[in-house]
């Protein structure tokens, strides 16, 4: 069955008619047209699809789009732009926390959730905050460095 819903993404409300069985990830990418959120494992393991729903991290691959109706979804596009980057984005580039870039949006969304909740995290807390995100390029150290530096800048 299709379901009519209002999906609020990055401050804009999109009236949509979607199949109930569709995940939030596919609706964001294919209906809303925001492709920053990535499909990795599509099985709730890798975190490439991470978005915020009402400020909290959610694996959008394993969350029905209709579950997000009436809630506020934030994707990587809602954080910053190429000209006006969010501090986490800027520090990720500066520290070399981006290589192939596929995990980067999800990684940054998890970091954003962490820093909103805990502006001064320890190294261990950053590791836990990013524990649902896999990166196969960087070895993580530069990502941890970027988040640590972004936390300082945001504070």
């Amino acid at each position: 069955m299709t379901h009519e819903m209002n999906l609020a993404v990055n401050g804009t409300t999109y009236p949509l008619t979607v199949d109930v069985s569709r995940n939030l990830l596919s609706v964001l990418r294919e209906e809303v047209g925001l492709t920053g959120t990535k499909q990795g494992c599509d099985d709730c393991e890798c975190g490439a699809c991470m978005v915020l729903v009402d400020g909290q991290p959610v694996n959008s691959c394993s969350y029905l789009a209709v579950q997000a109706g009436g809630r506020e979804v934030t994707t990587i596009e809602g954080l910053g732009t190429a000209d006006d980057m969010h501090p986490i984005q800027a520090k990720m580039l500066e520290a070399g926390g981006v290589q192939c870039g596929f995990c980067t949006p999800g990684m940054i969304m998890s970091a954003q959730a962490l820093l909103s909740d805990n502006p001064n995290p320890s190294g261990e807390e950053i590791r836990i905050g990013l524990s649902g995100n896999l990166c196969r390029c960087t070895g993580y150290q530069k990502i941890l460095q970027a988040i640590t530096e972004a936390a300082v800048e945001i504070r």
Binding site: S21, C44, S62, Y63, V66, Q67
Partner: peptide, 27 residues
């Protein structure tokens, strides 16, 4: 009923059990 939905959704995708015909969100 559906709460977070992870078990339900991942289970359906893996073919363990199809999504129910009628879902009530209780979250």
């Amino acid at each position: 009923p559906i709460a977070g939905g992870s078990d339900l959704f991942v289970g359906a995708r893996q073919g363990k059990a199809p999504l129910p015909e009628s879902i009530i969100a209780i979250d």
